[in-house]
Computed example of a mutant assay.
Amino acid sequence: MSDDTRTDADKARRHKASMQKQKARVDAAVEAADNERGVVILLTGNGKGKSSSAFGMVMRALGYGHSVGVVQFIKGVQLSGEEIYLRDHCPTVDFHQMGTGFTWNTQDRDSDIAAAEATWAKVEPMLADPGKDLVILDEITYMIGYKYLDEAKVLDAIANRPVEQSVIVTGRGGGSALRELADTVSEVKDIKHAFKAGIKARKGVDY
């Protein structure tokens, strides 16, 4: 056996041993995770992709025939690909938008608070419905941060949802109490963005 062949065989053995150890760790973790219930996932950070990730989970849930509710705070003035697709192809999705657009466009706090509360009224029945498997609260963190919605009321409704229901919350910030409540927190970091280089938002990619 040549030195090269011996080296390749040693690499193969080391790789197999390493993968066997990794599999044992993964299998043990899977075995230990025996708590069957819905989860709260917070997708936050200043980077692009939080809502996109949430809508990916919408598609995943629909693939299993789950009942899904989507409520978008902030967005709703400019038409988006997600809205078009859900309305045209997923009529079973309970879909609502606040419809006022970004808060820096409205510049009317009282109007924004009224719109937020009206939109929250669409959320509460979803969070109380045991037949709703997944609820997306897109950009609701801004409503908490700007104090358009009562933080305690929002967190209480999420915490006391049906045990099998999962909730995805997106948006920057949201506060320490929301982070504490969430089972999973993922932060999207802004490293580089095409818009900062003067590249226009692209249909089908950005909206």
Rank of each mutant, 00 (worst) to 15 (best):
M1H: 10
M1P: 14
S2M: 08
S2Q: 07
D3F: 05
D4P: 01
D4T: 10
T7N: 11
D10C: 00
D10R: 14
R14N: 12
R14G: 03
R14A: 08
H15C: 01
S18L: 12
Q22W: 12
K23W: 09
A24N: 10
R25I: 09
V26K: 14
V26Q: 12
A28K: 13
E31A: 14
A32R: 13
D34A: 14
E36V: 14
R37F: 06
G38K: 00
V40W: 02
V40L: 06
V40R: 04
I41C: 12
I41V: 15
G45E: 04
N46W: 09
K48R: 11
K48S: 00
K50M: 08
S51E: 01
S52I: 08
S52F: 07
G56C: 04
M57H: 09
M57V: 06
M57T: 05
R60C: 06
S67E: 09
V70K: 02
F73D: 01
G76C: 02
G76D: 03
Q78H: 11
S80G: 13
S80V: 02
E82V: 09
E83M: 12
E83H: 14
L86Y: 13
R87C: 09
D88N: 15
T92I: 06
V93D: 09
V93W: 10
V93C: 12
M98L: 03
F102T: 04
W104K: 02
N105V: 03
N105M: 07
T106L: 15
Q107E: 11
D108N: 15
D108R: 08
R109H: 02
D110E: 14
A114S: 08
A115R: 00
E117H: 07
T119W: 02
W120Q: 04
W120G: 01
W120T: 01
A121K: 14
A121N: 11
L127V: 09
G131Y: 10
L134Y: 08
L134C: 12
I136P: 08
L137Q: 04
L137D: 04
D138R: 11
T141P: 08
M143F: 04
Y148P: 02
V154P: 06
V154W: 07
V154S: 08
V154M: 09
L155D: 10
I158Q: 09
I158V: 15
N160K: 15
R161Y: 11
P162C: 13
P162W: 10
P162V: 13
V167R: 10
I168F: 12
R172S: 05
G173W: 02
G174F: 03
G174T: 06
S176F: 00
R179K: 15
E180L: 11
E180I: 03
L181F: 13
A182R: 07
E187F: 13
V188E: 00
K189Q: 10
I191E: 13
K192Y: 09
I199Y: 11
A201D: 05
G204T: 06
V205K: 14
V205T: 12
V205L: 15
D206C: 08
D206R: 05
